[in-house]
């Protein structure tokens, strides 16, 4: 439920940010895990803006690879392709695997994107496209 408000929370409250980032952490994804790095250190306003920087990098990748099916700013009716704003924020592993290996109609992207890049897209997905 809180998922809908993540972008607003990011801007307003670093405490909520830490909570969110914790929720999205998953130890099974070992490669350069950007969100894991963020939560290892103390939360601060500075890190909040770091998270937004990561999400912005993720948006750039999203805009080249994902936008044509998942929509500008992730706005998507969710009928023909998946509405990423509904993606459960505590299922990062599922996200990383789905993108890397492909799922249903989505092609595999693991040979075109590094795990770091997919991780950056995940940071953007956590914002519901609101940056």
């Amino acid at each position: 439920m809180k998922h809908k408000y993540i972008a607003d929370i990011l801007l307003l409250s670093f405490i909520s940010f830490v909570f969110t980032a914790n929720a999205s952490e998953n130890k099974s994804v070992k490669d350069e895990n950007v969100s894991a790095k963020i939560i290892e250190s103390d939360a601060s306003i500075a890190e909040n803006s770091v998270a937004i920087e990561f999400a912005k990098k993720g948006k750039k990748i999203y805009d080249s690879y994902c936008i044509r099916c998942h929509g500008p700013k992730m706005i998507n009716p969710g009928t023909v392709t998946y509405d990423l704003r509904r993606f459960p924020e505590d299922q990062k592993t599922r996200f990383m695997n789905s993108v890397a290996k492909g799922i249903k109609q989505m092609p595999p992207w693991g040979n075109k994107l590094s795990m770091e890049e997919i991780d950056l897209i995940w940071q953007y997905v956590l914002t519901d496209g609101k940056i």
Binding site: C69, G71, P72, K73, I75, N76, P77, T79, V80, T81
Partner: peptide
């Protein structure tokens, strides 16, 4: 449906 961001298409 893919690009317009028209939420009415969800129906």
């Amino acid at each position: 449906p893919l690009y317009a961001g028209d939420e009415r298409m969800a129906k």
